[in-house]
Amino acid sequence: MSDPTPTNPGITETERDELRRHGILLTGLEELYNWGRSHSVWPLNFGLACCAIEMIAASMAKFDIARFGSEVFRPSPRQADLLIVSGTVTKKMAPQVVRLWNQMPEPKYCIAMGACAISGGPFKQGYNVLKGIDRFIPVDIYIPGCPPRPEALLHGLVQLQEKIRNQAIAGPDAPRHLQAEGDCNCPIPECGAHDIEPAQNGALWPKPPELVRPTKS
């Protein structure tokens, strides 16, 4: 890339590399800030179902999530930056997941790991299965698979780091935690007589997508 980026106006990547060779590091506040954040994403130690085993595998010897700065699995949501929803969210569990999300301090991110967290997956037809955690909390990265391999989780993490690195620290595009009213508390559903109430967070999931049923050809 030779375009001057907004963070370092007037200087190209080549020139920057040239300077770096001489031991001079030129950077912007935004870049430095995001660089620091993106390499120490601490996940919450929170496993839901089968996918959690692959999440543990990702943090173990062979896959070693520590290479990406995320090996510090925190037991408490107060210390965590990343909620990895790793597995099936049942309706009985959904209020707790939302509560954990609300307890995490900003900036916080959410990865929906596996088909179940995305949409209910193989258990979608179940009466007690939530059809995707994005009905209640905002999801940053979706990792498909049943279960996704640990490599896929690592890829998802790298994508999240990419996303963090590209966040602006000021202006209208700034992330939630830098906005004045940057409160991302989601209403916690309640377990009712037949279903959870409400069945979705209206702000995130206004109505199911309008689709037309395809015909067999």
């Binding site: 949409s119 209910g120 979608k124 179940g126 009466y127 059809k131 279903d195 069945a199 199911p208 997508p209």
Partner: peptide
Amino acid sequence: YREPDDYEWE
């Protein structure tokens, strides 16, 4: 038993 109606496209 009829489960709550939250069917989604499959």
